[in-house]
C-alpha cells in the first residue's frame, strides 16, 4: 500500500471553492497555478469537480448563504481528502469577523486540516500549505490502511 500512498501524495487534485472571499486570495491561488509558481509540478490540478478532487481549497469565511454548499461539496468528495483554507478570513473570519451574515472560519462547517494565514496569502505560503496538507493526506491514507 506504500505505492498507493505515494500516488496519493503525488497527485492531489484540487477543488477550489470561493466561500465569499474578497477574491484577493483567489488571485494568489491562480498565480500559484500559473507558470511562475507552477504547482502542476507536484501533480496539482484544478479539477473543479468534487467527485474527483482530493483537496478542497477554500477561500473566504463560512456564511449563512453558502455554508450548505460548502458542506455539500465536502460530502461529495470521496475519501481520502484534506481541506486547506487559504487566507485569514477563511481561517477565522478575518476582516469579516462578526459581520451579521458570517458564521466565522470555514472550520465552523467542515473539518479543516491546514490553515494558510495571510491577507492575502502569498503563493509561496499556499505552496507551503499544500506541503503540509499532503503530509496530512499521507497520514490519513496510512491510517486508513491500518484501520482496515
Amino acid at each position: 500500500m506504500d505505492i498507493m500512498n505515494k500516488a496519493r501524495v503525488k497527485s492531489p487534485w484540487v477543488l477550489h471553492f470561493n466561500c465569499g472571499s474578497c477574491n484577493g486570495c483567489d488571485i494568489e491561488i491562480l498565480a500559484a497555478l500559473a507558470p511562475r509558481f507552477d504547482v502542476e509540478r507536484f501533480g496539482i490540478i484544478n479539477i473543479g469537480n468534487p467527485k474527483q478532487a482530493d483537496v478542497l481549497l477554500v477561500t473566504g469565511p463560512a456564511n449563512r448563504r453558502n455554508f450548505r454548499v460548502l458542506k455539500n461539496l465536502y460530502d461529495q468528495m470521496p475519501e481520502t481528502k484534506v481541506v486547506i483554507v487559504v487566507g485569514s478570513c477563511g481561517s477565522t473570519g478575518g476582516v469579516f469577523y462578526n459581520c451579521p451574515n458570517v458564521l466565522g472560519g470555514v472550520d465552523k462547517v467542515v473539518p479543516v486540516d491546514v490553515y494558510v494565514p495571510g491577507c492575502a496569502a502569498r503563493p509561496e505560503q499556499i505552496i507551503d500549505g499544500f506541503i503540509l496538507g499532503l503530509q496530512k493526506l499521507a497520514e490519513k491514507g496510512k491510517k486508513k490502511v491500518e484501520g482496515r
Binding site: 469537480n49 468534487p50 467527485k51 450548505r68 454548499v69 455539500n72 461539496l73 461529495q76
Partner: peptide
C-alpha cells in the same frame, strides 16, 4: 451511490432539484 454534482446546490432527498 451519490447524487450528481450540481455545483453544491443539491437538495437533500431529491436528486433532480437544486437550490
Amino acid at each position: 451511490v451519490k447524487p450528481p454534482f450540481l455545483g453544491g446546490e443539491n437538495v437533500e432527498g431529491n436528486p433532480s432539484a437544486f437550490r
